[in-house]
Amino acid sequence: MSNPIKSELKMLLQKLEQLKTLFTEMEMALIAYSGGVDSTLVAKIAYDVLGDRALAVTAESPSLLPEELEDARIQAATIGIRHQVVQTHEIENPNYTANPVNRCYFCKSELHDTLKPLAQQLGYPYVVDGVNADDLHDYRPGIQAAKERGARSPLAELSITKAEVRELSKYLGLPWWDKPAQPCLSSRFPYGEEITIAKLQRVGRAEIYLRKLGLKNLRVRSEGETAKIELPPEQIKEFVLTTNLPTLVSAFQEFGFIYVTLDLEGYRSGKLNQVLTFASTSAKV
């Protein structure tokens, strides 16, 4: 009788070898590196295979928390891969700041319109990203923008899921294997609400404040002048009972919010897109 755990590990290691083979065939690669668990795994494998022929590039903009940039620097140094930071200017594009449902398309267009010329200038034939197989089943207009500009997604190409990314990262001894997902700060705003640097900064400060309380998997959604805190459902009761709520509200008001609320459903990845599902369902009624 076969051991299911050993079978899963065998399949996982096969995918790891396929990743290595893919980078061997590329010979040189520039990695769109956010510092998230997905792109960091890609950067790790690329470096293991290519050494100095791999380059990780992080885009710095108002939608990236400074702490996330610092994490990206530390992780790149730990891996050993060469790391470069470039500036992107999606916040100057009115198509982006208007925050339409395909906002991410304009963000990734700016990113890859920056990375592709850089790769060509430095002699890298490929720009690769950290899109995984699960991302293909969510509403991700940014994926199309990357494809249009010739970027490759090794994890998605090899059908590697988010769970497998974490398992591979853990197997390789990467200490951030369980790092919570951290999409750009613009994802905290409902579609149609204008995005400004000031709004991004107040959301960023609010999330940093909560993380300093020891919370990890969280979001602060911004709706007009209201901050809506999302926490894992199992943490909500303890948060209410143990947090000095007046102090928290005062801090959030100093950041620029007027009202502070708590989402009783709790944190759920992709919640921003539920309005799209609701709109689609309503249209069929």
Results as ranks from 00 to 15, higher is better:
D263Y: 07
R73H: 12
R211S: 02
S280V: 05
I74E: 01
S282W: 09
K147Y: 13
A206E: 08
G173D: 07
A32G: 07
L41S: 12
M1G: 14
L218Y: 10
E25I: 12
C184R: 04
P94S: 08
Q120A: 11
Q182R: 14
Q120E: 15
S34A: 10
N3Q: 07
V86K: 02
T242S: 15
R73S: 06
N93K: 10
N244E: 15
L111T: 02
I31E: 07
A156H: 11
E8P: 04
P154W: 10
K10F: 10
K271W: 13
A56N: 02
Y191A: 10
A227T: 05
L231Q: 01
T247R: 15
P62L: 02
L118Y: 09
I5F: 09
A43V: 00
I91S: 04
A72F: 06
V260Y: 08
T281M: 13
K199A: 15
H89D: 11
N217T: 15
G51E: 10
K199V: 04
L174S: 03
G142P: 03
P233L: 00
L9C: 05
E254D: 15
L231C: 00
R140F: 11
K216W: 04
E234K: 11
F257K: 07
A151T: 13
Y259V: 08
T24S: 14
A46I: 02
I5C: 04
S7A: 15
R221V: 05
Q75C: 06
L111V: 09
L13E: 15
S250I: 06
S169T: 11
E225A: 13
S186W: 05
N244T: 00
L19A: 01
L262I: 14
E27L: 00
K20S: 00
M1N: 10
A181H: 12
S34F: 05
H137Y: 12
E67V: 14
A133Q: 13
E148R: 07
N102I: 12
G266R: 09
D178E: 15
N3R: 01
I195R: 01
L16P: 01
D263A: 11
Y209E: 12
I160E: 01
P4D: 07
S169D: 00
P175H: 10
E207H: 06
Q75N: 04
D129W: 04
S222W: 05
R205T: 06
D134A: 07
G214T: 03
P141N: 04
L111P: 08
Q182F: 12
T226N: 09
Y124D: 03
K147S: 09
G270I: 00
F189V: 09
H137Q: 13
V240C: 11
G142H: 08
V203S: 05
F278S: 11
Q84H: 12
L69H: 06
Y124H: 08
S63D: 08
E148I: 08
E238I: 07
V249E: 15
V131I: 15
S63G: 05
F239Y: 03
S187Y: 08
F278L: 14
T247C: 02
S7C: 06
A32M: 01
A145T: 08
S153C: 08
E25P: 03
E60K: 11
F189P: 12
L16H: 13
